[in-house]
Simulated scan of single mutants.
Amino acid sequence: MSTDTSPATGIADSAAYVVRRPHRSSFLTLRGLRHHVLRWGPEPDGTRPLLVMVHGWMDVGASFQFMVDAFHEDRSVVAIDWRGFGLTDSTPGDAYWFPDYLGDLDALLDALSPEAPVDLLGHSMGGNIAMSYAGVRPQRLRRLVNLEGFGLPDTAPEMAPARLASWLDELKETPSLKTYDSVEGVAQRLMKTNPRLSADKAAWLAPQWSRRGEDGRWHILGDPAHKRTNPVLYRKAEALACWSAITAPTLWVEGSETQLSQWWGDRYPREDFEARLAVVKDLRRVTLQQAAHMMHHDQPEALARAVQDFLG
């Protein structure tokens, strides 16, 4: 069997990934920061809700390309790069705060769909942001899709001194992310992190996920300050107060190969998560086979079907 070599990465594969629905890039200033906005499909005309998609930690909006390509019909879709990721400005100062993501999302909807409710989809960190937002602004959403936004293990007040001390110590250091000598190295990193990611998709995603710097090396498009310890404790009770206020029909999607213990060990048992999800009033669930946390890369066709079936 003959193979081609991707011009972007040099990775040999049976064929380069072919984009069916190219995205259009633009920029919006939201709360003083220049945000990168990706758009697919026709411009909204009021006949059906805008679909807004928000990515996870150390990811970019272009990561949804494979799922959008798998949709069986065109619709108006928007994704953003969160502050400090992709082509969006980094936050001023040296720290990132969860409420700022809600503020940025609220400003985005004010700009793109000020009157009509939207369909909102979030992955991982983006799923957690979407869940909180859906409880705070229930009138802004028609339907909600959460792709493995599990939340975090609960914390106790006595953890505060050590957490704050860690944050203060880390402020004295300059965080960094690994750089790569080629975009091929970035693609290899993506496949190492997610062995289910095919070479053609990795080759396409790598130049969306990184940029070549003046030093000639390829730099991940993420502010290293994201690596700092969050000094604000995660309060399960506060998160659940938001989840309980969600009124939009909600779809929970997870991969059959995802294991909570891979991130948190025994600090976040599955029973705890199931109890949290039970507070969502109108919930449907889908498990994608042969998929893990990066399901939009692992099984984009199956995910697209599940999302479209739910959104109608």
Rank of each mutant, 00 (worst) to 15 (best):
M1A: 13
M1V: 14
S2W: 09
T5K: 13
G10K: 12
A12V: 07
D13K: 03
S14M: 01
A15E: 13
A15H: 11
Y17P: 09
Y17C: 02
Y17T: 09
V18L: 14
H23L: 14
R24L: 13
L30F: 09
R31E: 12
G32D: 09
V37N: 09
W40Y: 02
G41T: 07
P42I: 00
P42M: 13
E43M: 06
E43R: 07
D45A: 05
G46W: 02
G46T: 03
P49G: 09
G61L: 11
A62C: 07
F66E: 07
F66K: 11
F66P: 03
F71Q: 00
V77S: 03
V78F: 10
D81H: 07
R83W: 07
F85H: 14
S90R: 09
P92D: 12
P92V: 03
A95L: 08
Y96K: 00
W97R: 09
W97K: 04
F98L: 06
P99R: 03
G103H: 10
L105D: 12
D106H: 14
D106N: 07
L108T: 06
L108E: 08
L112A: 11
L112K: 09
P117I: 07
P117K: 06
D119P: 02
M125H: 07
G126H: 05
G126V: 06
N128C: 15
I129M: 07
A130M: 04
M131Q: 15
S132F: 06
P138W: 10
R140N: 05
L141S: 00
V145Y: 02
L147N: 02
D154P: 12
T155R: 15
A156P: 00
A156V: 04
P157S: 06
E158C: 03
R163W: 06
L164H: 15
A165S: 15
A165M: 11
D169W: 06
P175D: 08
L177W: 12
R189T: 10
K192M: 12
N194H: 03
K201Q: 13
A203Y: 05
W204R: 08
L205Y: 14
A206L: 13
Q208Y: 02
R211K: 03
D215G: 14
D215Y: 00
R217I: 03
H219D: 14
I220L: 15
I220M: 15
L221T: 02
G222V: 14
G222M: 15
P224C: 01
N230T: 11
A237G: 12
A237F: 00
E238S: 01
A239L: 10
S244W: 01
I246Y: 11
T247R: 14
T247M: 09
W252V: 10
W252R: 00
T258Q: 13
Q259L: 12
L260R: 10
Q262T: 03
Q262S: 11
W264L: 01
Y268C: 01
E274F: 01
A275F: 03
R276M: 15
A278P: 04
A278K: 11
A278H: 15
V279N: 11
V280Q: 06
R285M: 08
L288I: 13
Q289M: 08
Q290G: 10
Q290H: 15
A292I: 01
M295P: 02
P300V: 12
L303I: 07
L303R: 11
R305K: 15
Q308Y: 09
Q308E: 15
Q308H: 09
D309S: 10
